[in-house]
Design a protein around this nucleic acid. Structure first.
Lengths: 346, 346
DNA sequence: CTGAAAGCGCTTACAG
DNA sequence: CTGAAAGCGCTTACAG
C-alpha cells in the first residue's frame, strides 16, 4: 500500500470502474457486478480474483450509475425551517434514524421560512429523484408538488399541513396544547392573559391562538385585542409586544408564549420586571427547569413527530396506498413554577 | 390542469424524459437539452415549442443521469456526531449556507460517536460520489479515506483533526480556551479546581485537559488525580464525578466543565448543594445568562467553524492545491457570574 | 457458473 | 441554429 503502488494503478481524479476490475481480474463485467453486490453464483476462486482486483485498484461502486439504472435512489429529503433551531434537532435525528434503518441517506436543507426557497429546494430534491420527502412547510401552496407526487415521490408534511393539496401530515395537537396552557393559567386565578405568537400565516400560530381563545371562552373571560400579538419571533418584536401588554393601564398578569423562541425572550423580559408575572411556554427546552422560576411548558415531542413522519413515508414507499392521513401527536403540560404564579395584586 | 389532462400524458410512477419532450415538440434531443439548461443557440420559436412540451408533460430533468455524465454531483456530505446536539446546529447551518451559495446540496448523517458507523457513512457518501466531505470525526484512524481523497473527493475535518492521515482541519483553540478558563478561576482565588471532561480518546477532551494542566502549572498549583475525571458525558457519570470531587475531605472549590453537556449537568448538581461552587463551562449555550448565577463560559464559534470548513472545502474543489492546513478558531471567555464566585471558606 | 448486449437519461463532441 | 451518435458506469434480461 505504498504511494508508488497506488500511483501506478490510478491517476489523481479518475476512478477505476467495474470494467477496469473485470479486465484486471480477467472476467466479465457481470461477474464483477455479482461480486460487488454479493449475488450468488460465483465460484470462490473467481470471487477471490475479483476481490483482489477491487482492492488493488481501490474500486468503489459508483452509486450514481446504479441509481440511474435501478430507478430508486435510496435517499430521502428533509426540508425544515432552520437547521440550527434546537426544536428541529430531535426531529432531524429521528428522521435520520428511520432513513438509516431503511438503508437510505438523508439530504437536508432549510427553507429559512421563505416559500420560494422551500420550493426551489424541494424541486432540486425532486430533480435528484429522492424517493421521498419529509417537509416542514414554509409555503402555503404546494400545488407545485402535484406532478412530483403523481410521478411517485412520496411526501409527508410535519409540524404544519400542506397547503392546497391533499397530503399526509404529522402535527402536534397545537389547539389542545394551547387550550391546556391557558386553562392552567386561568385555574391559577388569571383573567387577563397575553398571547405572543408567531406570524399568523403559520398554521401552528393560528391553531395555538384558537386554543387560547377557546380556553378564555370556556371560562367566560373576555379577550382584549391588546392581549394578542402575532408576528415575528425576533427578540425585539417579542420584547416590545410583552412590554406593551405589561405596561398597559390594566396589564396582563400572565403570558402564554407561542413557541420556544418567544418563551426565551419572554423569560428575559420578565426577569427584568419588579413584579412576578406568570408564564407558560409552548415547546419544552433543555434548561427550562434550571431558570428561576422554572418554566412551565406545553411540551411537544419532536422526536416522536420525526419518527412518525419518516415511518409513514417508508410505508408509502413500500406501496401502502390508502388516502392521505393526518396524524396528531399529543402534547403534555409540564408544571414547573412559572405557570403557577398567582396574579399580582392590582 | 385537470386530473384527466394529466392522466392522459403520464402514468403514475413513470416520468417523461427529454426524449419524450423532444418527440412531442418535434425537435432533437440536444435542442431540448439546450432549452432545459438555458444554453444559447435556440430560436425563440423553437424554445417556445419545447417549453410547451415540458409543461404539458410535467418534465423535470433527472439529475441522476446528468451527474453520471458530468462527473460532479454538486453535493457535499456532512458527517457529525449527533444531529440533535445544539452545539452542531449552527455549524450545520453554516455548512448548508456555504453549500447553497455554491449550488450544492447537503447530505447529512450522524456517526453517534461510533468509528465504524462513521466509516460506513463516509464510504456510502463516497459511493454517491459527493464532491466533498466535511467530517466531525468519531474515528481516530482515517486511512480508509486515502483512496477516496486520491480519487479526488475533497475532505475537511472540523472540531477534531483527522487520524493518521494528513488532511485539512478547522479546530477551536481548545488548549488556549481551557487554559483561559482555569486561569480565570485561579485569578478568583481557587486552588483546588476540578475538571470533568469527555472521553480521553476524543481530541478536544485531551486538549482541554492539557489547557487545564498548563494553567495550574503556570500558577504553581499541584493537581490531585482525584480532581480530573474524563469519560462519558452521560448525566449519571458526570453527576457521580462532580459529587465525588465536592464531597472529598478537601473538596474542589471550583469546577471546569469540559463541554456543554457536562456543564448542564454540573449546573443541576451545583444547584442542589448548600454552598456555592464556582463553575466555568467550555461551550456557550442559549440560556447560560438566565440561570442564577449566570454561567461563565469559554465560547466557541461553531458557525464560524462551519463557514471556514465549508469555504476551504469549496476552494479545494476549485482546484487550490497547497498542502493540508490546520486552522484554529479562537475562543472567548464570557464572564457571567458563576466563574467569579470566590472559594468557600474551609 | 459466466458473460455479451442493451439500456437507464442525460451531456459531450462533432457534423451539418 | 439544429441534431445524430457515442458514452458516463452501472444493472437487466437473456443466452450459453
Amino acid at each position: 500500500m505504498t504511494d508508488t503502488a497506488r500511483g501506478t494503478s490510478r491517476r489523481y481524479g479518475t476512478r477505476p470502474t467495474m470494467k477496469d476490475v473485470a479486465a484486471r481480474a480477467g472476467v466479465g463485467l457481470k461477474t464483477v457486478s455479482r461480486v460487488v453486490n454479493g449475488e450468488p453464483g460465483v465460484t470462490p476462486d473467481t470471487e477471490r480474483r475479483v476481490q483482489e482486483a477491487i482492492t488493488a485498484l481501490g474500486f468503489r461502486r459508483n452509486d450514481s450509475a446504479r441509481i440511474l439504472r435501478k430507478g430508486r435512489t435510496a435517499s430521502i429529503g428533509l426540508v425544515l425551517e432552520d437547521l440550527a433551531d434546537p426544536f428541529y434537532g430531535p426531529l432531524n435525528r429521528a428522521v435520520e434514524e428511520v432513513a438509516r434503518s431503511h438503508g437510505a441517506l438523508l439530504i437536508n436543507g432549510s427553507s429559512a421560512e421563505d416559500p420560494s426557497r422551500e420550493q426551489e429546494l424541494v424541486l432540486a430534491l425532486c430533480a435528484r429523484r429522492v424517493d421521498g420527502l419529509v417537509i416542514i412547510p414554509a409555503a402555503d401552496d404546494h400545488r407545485y408538488l402535484e406532478p412530483e407526487i403523481t410521478a411517485g415521490i412520496a411526501t409527508v408534511f410535519v409540524d404544519r399541513p400542506a397547503g392546497r393539496i391533499d397530503a399526509d401530515a404529522v402535527l402536534s395537537d397545537n389547539f389542545g396544547g394551547a387550550r391546556d396552557a391557558v386553562a392552567h393559567l386561568i385555574a391559577h386565578g388569571h383573567r387577563r392573559i397575553g398571547f405572543i405568537g408567531d406570524q399568523p400565516r403559520i398554521h401552528t400560530a393560528r391553531e395555538r391562538l384558537r386554543g387560547y381563545r377557546a380556553a378564555m371562552a370556556a371560562a367566560g373571560l373576555p379577550i382584549d385585542d391588546s392581549w394578542v400579538s402575532l408576528g415575528s419571533t425576533a427578540p425585539d418584536r417579542v420584547r416590545a409586544a410583552a412590554t406593551t401588554m405589561l405596561d398597559a393601564p390594566e396589564p396582563v398578569t400572565a403570558l402564554f408564549a407561542g413557541n420556544n423562541r418567544v418563551t426565551v425572550t419572554a423569560v428575559r423580559v420578565l426577569g427584568e420586571r419588579p413584579r412576578p408575572v406568570a408564564l407558560v411556554g409552548f415547546d419544552d427546552f433543555e434548561l427550562a427547569d434550571l431558570v428561576r422560576p422554572a418554566i412551565t411548558v406545553v411540551a411537544q415531542d419532536p422526536a416522536h413527530m420525526g419518527r412518525t413522519a419518516a415511518g409513514l413515508l417508508f410505508r408509502r414507499l413500500d406501496g401502502i396506498e390508502d388516502p392521505p392521513r393526518r396524524t396528531e401527536i399529543p402534547t403534555r403540560l409540564i408544571a414547573r413554577g412559572s405557570g403557577e404564579i398567582p396574579p399580582a395584586e392590582d
